[in-house]
Design a binder for these strands. Structure first.
Lengths: 333, 333
DNA sequence: GCACCCTTGCAAATCGATTTGCATATCTTG
DNA sequence: CAAGATATGCAAATCGATTTGCAAGGGTGC
């Protein structure tokens, strides 16, 4: 065969109508044992599987969801994607994974494309788009789970990590070791995790009674290269901080590159801490002190919340799932 | 609105028939300028986008492909996935990414599921399934690009890396440094890259006139943990090799863990080399000597080949794209 | 033996977009 | 100005599965 068999062919083969085949397979209406077995035999012989596109059109359910991330190349996202995948697969769902690069236009386009594809739901970590804008694109009925943005909880279910918790712990740790001159390198401004973490950083510094120096706050793309560039910028300042916290581990690794290039010892000359605790953080040298972001739990929570929203419908109460973060003290700070 | 608008609603709004809207949008039949503009205005006002599910059912083209990988958590795959994504997006395609864990049942199920979803094509790195079996599942018409398996080129387009090239170079390098006792830790047996690489290893040893010791050949899952386990096993042998080549970088990193745990210095006591050259390879300490597997080029080649196959149809000549690999000599060997 | 119910099966409508066949309106051209 | 060509629009069929409404066959009870 050059094309999968249709229900009509199964019906013909079994000598019944397509209706009966459908009922026999779905069990929505009784079908005599004899007929059912005959149909079953035909199904197996022809290797029939219902066409999900047709099914999706009729039932308005595609068993498909969208996972929108900034860049799958950042190891944090595969970890999320993997547990999302594992939860979904059990229920027969599959995911489109789309990279948006955190770009507002890409984010919106991706949302529109996914809507046009009738996905049953969307999981997204917005970088440049507010939850309200997202909602306005996908319409009020689309199940939507947003990673890590407390704002807009009325427009979407939320899975948020308590970034402030880990960052406070981190600042206490740094201050406890005598660090008073601490910089922060965040991601690009917008609606991404960098903003949340920067805000938490400001709070945390205040909590340990340290001043915030605006000239020690920088922003750069969430990549190793971005970190290297911002790191060089930071370390080239006339007054240079003694510690740098970064919005994610990739930036921190880039800053380590910059520190090495500037012949600075880590952590003696410059302490560096990251955020996420990606696998690599434990592998670099010196091993990166960072805040653990439980990617697998985030993914699992997102997928579970989304599936629940899909089955419960839009009137079910909003879900807000908060996950803890914690400092992982290693060698870089 | 609680649901996207349909072509019928656009037609009603513009005061024409759905047919005319379709023709106006596709340009397959002339539509007077006035009508066309009126339709365009309605489209924009209602924010109409054609329903891809309906379109897919009618046209038998979903603008969707499947990317089947063993485990998206292995950094090699995100690198491939990213360039696949970038090529596809330009042409309005999106990808399901499915993890198979290299398990034969999962691989087959995934193929069947993707077939049922009418994807326009499949990119897969098979681990336990032959190309022939894959072809028998998806049928003769499905565009299929396989990563790295020379066998079965009559059943699918191929993107293969010349693993033997890098491995020969590596053995020459190792032998040149005086290593004569070299082990190989491969992946699970089946149809995956480990088999190809192990075969190349045997050839390469012979080429540098070194004997192959069967007790220095082991197999383990393609993960860091797998590498750690096999590494411990290997290093606990009465006669222990002086160098270990691994089927991928993750295994190599696990072997480094094992070496450290056994208080062995790398590379002095035990040289370790990996395969893939994932980002992390350059970050671990000591920096991992490995064979570069050009993931981005692989992804790009896969996506390009698949799109071409989709547009050219199944009678177009088979594509076999070979990409070079090369030794990246760093510190671990 | 009649009425009623339950089981089982089918025809037809539906989801939304595309496309073919047909019909009308407009335009050329000799 | 007649006739053929061209432009433009619509109704209906189609893709494949689901589901509703209808009907026939079989069985039961009184």
């Amino acid at each position: 065969m050059t094309k999968p068999f249709s229900i009509a062919e199964v019906a013909a083969d079994a000598g019944v109508s397509p209706t009966t085949v459908s009922h026999a397979l779905s069990g929505k209406r009784a079908v005599s044992k004899a007929t059912r077995e005959r149909i079953q035999a035909s199904v197996e012989r022809l290797n029939y599987r219902p066409n999900m596109v047709a099914k999706g059109l009729r039932s308005q359910r595609t068993n498909t969801i969208a996972l929108l991330v900034a860049d799958i190349t950042n190891p944090y996202y595969p970890a999320v994607a993997r547990s999302v995948h594992d939860v979904l697969t059990k229920d027969g769902y599959f995911a489109f994974i789309v990279n948006t690069d955190g770009d507002p236009t890409s984010e919106r386009n991706a949302l529109r494309e996914m809507l046009a594809r009738s996905v049953d739901g969307v999981i997204m970590q917005p970088m440049s788009t507010t939850v309200e804008e997202m909602r306005s694109i996908v319409g009020p009925a689309m199940p939507l789970v947003v990673i890590g943005d407390k704002k807009g909880a009325q427009d979407a279910d939320q899975v948020l990590t308590d970034d402030a918790m880990g960052i406070h712990e981190c600042m206490r740790y740094l201050a406890g070791k005598g660090n008073t001159e601490i910089a922060f390198i965040s991601g690009p401004p917008g609606n991404g995790p960098g903003d949340t973490r920067l805000a938490a950083f400001r709070d945390a510094l205040a909590a340990v009674k340290l001043p915030v120096r605006e000239d020690w706050i920088d922003r750069t793309p969430y990549t190793r290269d971005g970190g290297a560039v911002a790191g060089m910028r930071m370390l080239a300042r006339a007054e240079r901080p003694r510690a740098i916290m970064c919005a994610n581990d990739l930036i921190a690794i880039g800053v380590m590159d910059a520190a090495r290039a500037a012949n600075l010892r880590i952590p003696d000359d410059i302490a560096i801490v990251g955020f996420d605790n990606i696998e690599t953080a434990d592998l670099v040298s010196p091993r990166l002190t960072t805040v653990d972001n439980p990617a697998a739990s985030v993914g699992e929570a997102c997928a579970t919340a989304l599936l629940r929203r899909i089955t419960d419908g839009r009137d079910a109460p909003h879900q807000v799932i908060a996950l803890p973060t914690k400092l992982i003290a290693r060698e870089s700070a």
